[in-house]
Write a protein that binds this DNA or RNA. Structure first.
Lengths: 224, 224
DNA sequence: GTTGCGAATAAACCTAAGTATGGTTCTCCC
DNA sequence: GGGAGAACCATACTTAGGTTTATTCGCAAC
């Protein structure tokens, strides 16, 4: 079920609005949350089970997931672990009627945004959702930058990748040339190709790209 | 009270061994934890109150803090908040006999490593301590790098700082010169001074330092 | 009031980087 | 077997980067 802006006659469901996903087997809980989120203009999609959620193709917008710890077949915690394993990093807000502290710790350690005990105040839920959406927005922005860089990096030839690594590590052209056993002029040509393909405006720019791509000395400490 | 390696006749209390701090008003708890940690060779210092802990000058080694949620005067959570406010970032492991979920959530959101309910298994505590010490070690390593860079950066004159910012942003010497209204040769001189003072081996090296120092375009995105 | 330092500059000089233009040798693929 | 692209190299030229030596100015500390 979809509510929120998409349900209003004036708004489009364009992939711009943040979306809240709710999984709960209790229809009255789903409706109550839908109403709550709709009241603040948030697009909302509800599911009766984790399985249904997985069927659904997630839209490419900032979103979060609201999950009861006690789900029909799978526990909320196990579902959280499964999503992580499947490399799905949607921020999760847990709800529970009778949770305990170890559950809470496990959920929070695994990155949950919040863990609300029923009954909770509407405002607490809205605050958690705001935080979660914001977190997802940041994560998406970062992931997009990385994806674009990876795509550009993928267009480099093996030799160009090698040269980029050495150049961004701080070696001079002649050192790079000696390292890989070619003439300095060849390195210069590779370098030109690299700058064009990576769309780097300057060497510092390329260095920052390499940082983000995790190229070079292990984790990227300074003091090269 | 100090136990662990320092208490053994063969070891020095040199600032090398990780240290566990315990704050609990119950002496039997303190002793039990001391024994536990000593059994695995961890240096341990115990306190009866948060106040006592603050009196104590923390050694410069990876460490963590074990805290009962219910402290004599101050709640463990409030103490955690105070430490954060005082810019003390020691990882905290909470213990509690009768905590609740909101407390747990608050503690974990504030960065606690773990939140153990009494009675807990020794192994759970040891695992948490291992994680906490490791986390502190990483934090310290990172902080040290930043501190060194900041110290070097502080030796730069205002002009040099300005030039470093523009150069690491990717501007050519002539552009920097135009930007700040000096001759290109002057920029080159400043640049040389910068490289020496910062102990940068190459421009990419300097760029990475600037990244760590948070110099330049806001938070340091690529695509300059 | 002179000594020291930051800042700016100039001339001379050298090295590094970058860009053609032109050419060779592979290999892979159609 | 011919085209595409990768890798390589050379010559020639231009621009950018960097050091050394020396000079000037202002300001603050001694």
């Amino acid at each position: 079920m979809v509510t929120g802006r998409a349900a209003s006659p004036t708004a489009h469901a364009n992939a711009e609005d943040p979306t809240v996903f709710v999984i709960d087997d209790d229809a009255s809980v789903r409706d109550a949350l839908s109403n709550l989120f709709r009241s603040v203009g948030l697009r909302t999609v509800t599911f009766g089970s984790a399985h249904e959620f997985l069927q659904h193709k997630p839209p490419d917008v900032p979103s979060c997931l609201i999950l009861d710890i006690r789900l029909p077949r799978l526990s909320g915690l196990d579902f959280q672990a499964e999503l992580a394993k499947a490399d799905i990093h949607i921020p999760i807000i847990f709800m529970t009627g009778h949770g305990d502290i170890p559950m809470t710790v496990r959920a929070m350690k695994a990155g949950a945004v919040d863990f609300l005990t029923k009954p909770f105040r509407d405002q607490d839920m809205l605050d958690a959702v705001t935080t979660a959406i914001e977190r997802d927005r940041n994560r998406r922005d970062g992931a997009k930058v990385v994806a674009n860089l990876r795509a550009a990096f993928a267009t480099l030839t093996p030799r160009e990748r090698q040269v980029m690594t050495l150049v961004t590590a701080g070696l001079m052209n002649k050192q790079v040339a000696a390292e890989i056993g070619v003439a300095e002029i060849t390195v210069k040509i590779h370098r030109g190709h690299i700058m064009r393909k990576m769309a780097a405006k300057s060497l510092p720019d390329l260095v920052r790209m390499a940082q983000i791509l995790g190229i070079g000395p292990a984790s990227g400490r300074a003091q090269t």
